[in-house]
């Protein structure tokens, strides 16, 4: 599904290397988790994959089902099936949440040569999906993320994911700012989307989220590289002992 090879990335403005050769393959139907200390490059990886400005790829490749995503515009990546659940979802005053989601869905469908969804059909669709995530009508009506609590913003991200049905989902610290109940709700939302045809890359600091979203593989990232890969037990080890032992072990 997603294949990253020897990816090197610098900050455009600072000439500073952030990713120093990331290799990672996420297969369809699998959940991969990336953990790592602050500043290890986890979020950068998610931004580079989704096409945010300000990063320069100096070496390496990233493909989605064989297609080179790094040469695509952000909207093309989305239409190709890549989805990033933001760590900090952006507030957009003046743009209604519903308008935003319908515009996004139809733009993606149009880009893929599919028919647009009518207003009435969209309403039905979004209401059904919103209900599962306990998102009320008011949240759908308000401007995108404006006045949303931390938990509401994350639920809204998962709602977009459920609506857009991407092939490859990247979750960037989706657990940050969530209380226990919200984490359960969000995780249930993600788990409901787990599917043989869909890949997940879950970026997190804590093992807690991985109790809910059970990963097939856990990778430890440090200083711009993946330094260790294992099963779910690796996350438990990190939770217990921190990163120090692992860092020492590979050093």
């Amino acid at each position: 599904m997603l294949e990253i090879k020897n990816l090197h990335v610098e900050l455009e403005d600072e000439d500073k290397a952030i990713l120093k050769g990331v290799d990672l393959t996420v297969e369809a139907g699998k959940v991969h988790a990336i953990m790592g200390p602050n500043g290890s490059g986890k979020s950068t990886l998610s931004y580079v994959l989704s096409g945010r400005d300000g990063y320069e790829v100096t070496e390496g490749t990233a493909t989605l089902e064989g297609a080179d995503i790094l040469s695509m515009e952000p909207e093309e990546r989305a239409a190709a099936g890549l989805f990033l659940a933001f760590q900090y979802p952006v507030e957009i005053p003046g743009v209604g949440n519903m308008t935003f989601m319908r515009t996004a869905l139809n733009a993606q469908r149009k880009a893929r040569g599919e028919d647009e969804v009518s207003a009435a059909d969209f309403l039905k669709l979004i209401r059904a999906k919103a209900k599962e995530l306990k998102i009320d009508a008011d949240m759908l009506k308000r401007p995108v993320n404006v006045g949303f609590s931390g938990g509401e913003k994350k639920r809204n991200e998962i709602l977009q994911m459920a609506l857009l049905e991407p092939k490859m989902c990247i979750l960037d610290e989706t657990d940050s700012g969530l209380d226990v109940d919200a984490m359960k709700l969000v995780s249930d939302g993600v788990n409901a989307l787990r599917d043989a045809g869909r890949g997940f890359l879950v970026i997190t600091h804590y093992q807690r989220l991985l109790d809910h979203i059970k990963p097939d593989f856990v990778h430890i990232m440090s200083d711009g590289r993946i330094i260790k890969t294992g099963g779910p037990e690796l996350a438990i080890e990190v939770e217990k002992n921190g990163y120090a032992d692992i860092l020492a072990e590979v050093a």
Partner: peptide
């Protein structure tokens, strides 16, 4: 960027904003 990451083309996203 947020709008584009959801698949809204740049020109349309600019108009929306």
């Amino acid at each position: 960027y947020y709008l584009r990451a959801r698949g809204v083309p740049k020109a349309l996203a600019t108009d929306l904003l």
